[in-house]
């Protein structure tokens, strides 16, 4: 399956509707990815202006969510899509809500960034934020990229990365908890970092969801809630 697959209907209007859904999803993906990047930078560089920009983008993301859902509902109602068309519409509606949630998590990080500029910076945790943040950002990019190319193998990689992020998140938690015990005066500020890490970890989960939807779209297999090794098997099992 590649992108031209959805431009082969006898009805050219149907082709255009599917293309519109696809390109709007990609546009929304771009917006949300930019939000994540900006939120991270705002946090790491104590840039409250950039943080405000992230919060402003939320409305646009919400509008995109509604627009794409409306397009999907109209295809369902008017075209009665089947097989890959049906899977495309279902996968897109689910991805759209994951993207919207990623936008929400970015906004949380942006709010933490504003608080940290007001209350003074956290004495610890920036290394972890940078590390996990970059990791998660790459996951989101890869998930969207896999979606753009209908690349199921890349989607499997994203799912595998999510496990790594979960490990890194737990190890970061342990070290920050230790630090708070040693220096209780820093708890408020370190907590802000912890919330941010939590948001990043959630972004990783949502990116994985997007990758899983792509696998459903391309392979017709539901790979949610199963270990990565099994996903790998299912994807390579049949093309």
């Amino acid at each position: 399956m590649d992108r031209s697959h959805f431009g082969q209907h006898s009805s050219s209007q149907f082709n255009e509707e599917m293309e519109s859904i696809r390109s709007h999803l990609m546009e929304m993906g771009g917006l949300v990815e930019k939000q994540v990047i900006d939120a991270l930078q705002a946090l790491l560089q104590a840039d409250s202006q950039l943080a405000d920009k992230v919060l402003e983008t939320e409305d646009r993301v919400d509008d995109m969510e509604k627009l794409i859902d409306e397009e999907c509902a109209s295809v369902l109602a008017l075209r009665q899509p089947a097989a890959s068309d049906l899977r495309m519409v279902i996968a897109v509606t689910k991805c759209v809500s994951d993207l919207e949630r990623i936008g929400d998590e970015s906004a949380k990080i942006a709010r933490m960034a504003v608080q940290l500029t007001e209350e003074g910076e956290s004495p610890r945790g920036y290394v972890e934020v940078r590390h996990i943040g970059n990791h998660v950002r790459q996951m989101l990019r890869d998930a969207l990229d896999a979606f753009a190319r209908f690349d199921a193998d890349k989607a499997v990689e994203v799912a595998a990365e999510d496990n790594e992020v979960d490990l890194e998140y737990r190890s970061a938690m342990r070290s920050l908890v230790t630090f708070m015990m040693e220096d209780p005066r820093s708890i408020t500020r370190v907590l802000n970092i912890i919330w941010s890490l939590r948001a990043l970890e959630r972004i990783g989960d949502h990116s994985r969801n997007i990758a899983e939807q792509l696998i459903y779209l391309v392979k017709g297999k539901d790979v949610r809630h199963i270990p990565v090794a099994e996903i790998q098997e299912q994807v390579s099992g049949k093309s």
Binding site: R3, G7, Q8, M26, E27, G30, L31, E33, R149
Partner: peptide, 20 residues
């Protein structure tokens, strides 16, 4: 907004709707 199809390992070309 960055366009993730423009970067990374080889951009994917975008055929117009209806392009077979």
């Amino acid at each position: 907004a960055p366009n993730f199809t423009d970067t990374g390992n080889g951009p994917a070309s975008i055929p117009a709707a209806g392009d077979k």
